[in-house]
Simulated scan of single mutants.
Amino acid sequence: MSFRSYKDKIEEGDTAILYLSNNLYAIDVQPEMKNKKGELIENVYQTPFGALKVKTLIGAEYGSRVELSKGWGHVLQPTPELWSLTLPHRTQIIYTPDISMIMLQLDLVPGSIVLEAGTGSGSLTHALIRRVRPHGHVHTFDFHEHRSKVAQEEFMEHGIADFVTAKHRDVLADGFGEELNGKADAVFLDLPSPWVGVPHALAAIKDQGGRFCSFSPCIEQVQRTCLALQEYGFQEISTMEVLQTEIKVSRRTVPVRDLSFLKQKSSTSPVEEKPSSETSYVVGTWPQSTPGHTGYLTVATQPPYARSKAKKSKPENDDDKSSSENGDKMVIDETV
C-alpha cells in the first residue's frame, strides 16, 4: 500500500525499494512466502551483499539503513520513477524522460479523466494515477488479456485500484466503449497503429475539448498519425523526441603564462617557455555517449465541440473504412 500515500514507516504488505550501490530492487514486504512445495517459509531476499530477512523491514523508517548478512543498504519509499526502474517487464516500457513530457503535454491535473491504450507493464499508468488522484481516474486498456489481468492485480497490491480501471480491450477495433464517450480530458495511445485510434480518441474527449498524445518508435507511424489528426479536426499538432543529456560538472586546472612583459616598450628578457602559474575553473563537459532514440511523441489539441462538427462532416463512404490492430488498413486517405 506504499504507493497510495507517503508515510514514515514500512508496514506489512508494502512495496519497498532496496538501494544497494546504485542498484535498485523492489521487495514485497511479507514476512513469509511459499516455496515450490506450497509450504510457508520465512521470506529471505537474496542480494549481492548477502541475505535480507524481509520481516526486519516492518516498522523500519523509509530512507533508513538496513543491515544485510554481508553489508548494508537503504530502503526507499516507492515512486513511479523508482518503480519504472525495478518493475517486472511484461513489455517495453516508457521511462521517466518521456513520461515527464507526456504529463506536461496532456495538461493533467488532480481530477482529470485520462484514457490510456496500451497498459503494458504499467510504468506510465502509475505516473498517470499519481497526477490525477485523489478525484481523477485513469482508464487503461490492453488487447492482451493476461497483461491486463496482471496489471489490475498489481494496482490492487499497491493500493491504488480506486484510481484506475484496467480492462482487456482492443481499442483500435472496438474503441474505448460508449460509456466513456465524451468523458475524457486526455487520451494517450501507445499502440502499433495510433492513427487508427484517432477517431476513437475524438469520440472519447469531452465536448469542452482536450489533449491527445501518442508514442511511436517509427517516423512512418508519426506521419500517418499526423494526417489522421489533421483530418479529424485536431489542432496544434506537433511531434517531439526527448533525449536526455546530462552535463558533468568538474574542476579543471589551466596553465597561465605571465604576459606582463608585453606592457614594456622593449624587453631584453626572453619569454619563458613554461607557464608561470595555474588557474582552476569549474566547467561543464558533455558526456562521451548519449542515450539513443526511444520514440516520438505526437501531441495535439481537440478544440471545443470538435466531435459534433466531425460527425456532421463525416464522409458518406466512411463505413467502408476499417481498422485492425496492426494497421493493415488505414482510417485515412493518404492522397489528401
Rank of each mutant, 00 (worst) to 15 (best):
R133A: 11
A117F: 00
S280K: 14
K53Q: 13
K7I: 00
L52C: 05
S214I: 01
L68H: 05
F155R: 02
V132P: 08
A26H: 01
I332E: 04
F49E: 05
D318P: 02
Q244V: 00
E153M: 13
T279L: 15
S148R: 09
G159E: 06
K53G: 03
D162R: 11
S308K: 15
T15L: 14
H137N: 09
G292D: 04
Q152L: 08
L24W: 09
S289R: 10
F141D: 02
A51I: 02
D162G: 03
H144A: 00
R4I: 10
R307D: 04
G210N: 12
F163P: 01
E178T: 10
F234C: 09
Q46K: 09
T79F: 14
S277L: 07
S238T: 05
E316P: 00
Q92W: 04
K167Q: 07
T279K: 15
R307I: 00
H126E: 00
S193F: 03
D107S: 14
Q221L: 07
L24N: 04
S308V: 06
V164I: 12
R224M: 08
H168W: 10
S260W: 10
V164C: 14
P217N: 04
G59W: 11
D328Y: 12
Y6K: 12
A201Q: 04
L227M: 14
G38L: 01
E179H: 14
M156K: 15
E154M: 10
V44E: 12
S2H: 03
L52R: 11
K7Q: 13
K9Y: 11
I102R: 03
E316S: 12
Y25E: 05
P48D: 09
D8Q: 12
V254K: 11
I205A: 06
T96A: 14
